[in-house]
Amino acid sequence: MNEKILSLLKSARTSKQFTQKFVAEKLGVKGNTIGNYENGITEPDIDTFVKLCNLYEINYSDVLETAYGHPQDENNISIHEKELIKKYRQLTAEQQGAIENSIDYYIKANMKDESTENGEDPFENKVG
């Protein structure tokens, strides 16, 4: 199993202050099974993986996304991007406008960096 997944599962367990024994009892597995999972000696099957995520109150798809990354398309955003959206939605309309203006500024700045070779200035007002 991917080392990031093992680390995330162990971290989730310890953040809940669950012992390996407690988790094993909850899942109905032998006492050393959880330690074997966390050390990469054995792997949980998919059902057990989902049960671990449920017990730790973490989303299994988020764990997989964090471990393996995500496709770069508009319909699949990262955990970090989801958190930014949550924060953005807590802002007033005026604050959201300021954030949007900042994003536009930085996009233009990046375009300027990329276009300095051909002399274009994205900050220059262009009249049709």
Results as ranks from 00 to 15, higher is better:
Ala67Glu: 06
Lys82Ile: 05
Gly35Val: 02
Thr42Leu: 02
Lys108Asn: 13
Pro122Tyr: 01
Ala12Asp: 00
Ile34Tyr: 04
Glu43Met: 01
Pro122Glu: 10
Glu124Gln: 10
Leu9Met: 08
Asn101Leu: 14
Ile103Thr: 08
Lys4Trp: 06
Ile46Cys: 06
Cys53Glu: 06
Gly128Gln: 04
Thr14Ile: 05
Ser115Leu: 15
Glu120Phe: 07
Met111Asp: 15
Gly28Pro: 07
Thr48Asn: 01
Phe49Thr: 00
Glu83Pro: 00
Lys112His: 09
Asp73Met: 15
Phe49Ser: 01
Asn2Asp: 08
Ile34Gly: 03
Leu55Tyr: 10
Lys10Leu: 05
Glu81Pro: 00
Lys21Leu: 15
Pro122Trp: 03
Ala12Phe: 03
Ile41Met: 05
Ser7Lys: 10
Lys4Phe: 06
Ser78Thr: 14
Ile85Asn: 14
Lys51Asn: 11
Ile46Ser: 14
Ala98Ile: 12
Gly35Ser: 14
Ile79Val: 14
Asp47Glu: 09
Glu114His: 12
Asn39Trp: 02
Pro71Trp: 01
Phe22His: 05
Lys21Thr: 06
Thr116Gln: 11
Ile41Asn: 06
Ile103Phe: 12
Cys53Phe: 14
Glu65Lys: 09
Glu83Phe: 10
Tyr88Leu: 07
Tyr56Ser: 02
Gly97Glu: 15
Ser102Asn: 12
Lys16Asp: 05
Asn76Leu: 15
Glu100Met: 12
Gln90Pro: 00
Ile77Tyr: 04
Ile79Asn: 11
Thr42Val: 04
Asp104Arg: 14
Tyr88Ala: 05
Glu25Gly: 13
Lys82Asn: 13
Asp121Pro: 02
Asp62His: 15
Asn36Thr: 00
Gln90Asp: 05
Arg89Trp: 04
Ser102His: 06
Asn125Cys: 10
Glu81Gly: 00
Ser7Val: 11
Phe18Tyr: 10
Tyr105Ser: 12
Lys112Tyr: 05
Gly97Trp: 10
Lys126Met: 10
Glu94Arg: 13
Gln17Thr: 15
Gly128Met: 07
Arg13Gly: 04
Asn110Ser: 12
Thr19Phe: 04
Ile58His: 06
Thr92Phe: 08
Lys16His: 12
Asp62Asn: 11
Ile46Met: 13
Tyr60Lys: 10
Val29Phe: 02
Ala24Gln: 02
Thr42Glu: 00
Tyr105His: 08
Leu55Phe: 06
Lys87Gly: 01
Asn32Glu: 03
Pro122Gln: 05
Asn118His: 01
Lys16Met: 12
Gly128Pro: 13
Asn36Asp: 02
Pro44Thr: 00
Glu25Phe: 07
Leu64Ser: 05
Leu91Pro: 03
Leu8Ser: 04
Glu117Asn: 12
Thr42Cys: 02
Asn75Met: 14
Glu117Phe: 11
Thr14Pro: 01
Asn118Tyr: 00
Ile99Ala: 07
Ile5Leu: 08
Ser61Glu: 10
Lys108Ala: 15
Asn2Ser: 08
Lys112Leu: 13
Thr14Asn: 05
Leu91Ala: 07
Ala24Tyr: 00
Ala12Lys: 07
Thr92Arg: 09
Asp45Val: 00
Thr42Asp: 01
Ala93Val: 11
Lys26Gly: 05
Asp47Trp: 03
Ser15Gln: 13
Glu65Ser: 15
Gly97Lys: 15
Leu9Gly: 08
Lys82Trp: 03
Gly35Met: 09
Gly97Phe: 00
Gln72Ala: 15
Ser7Pro: 07
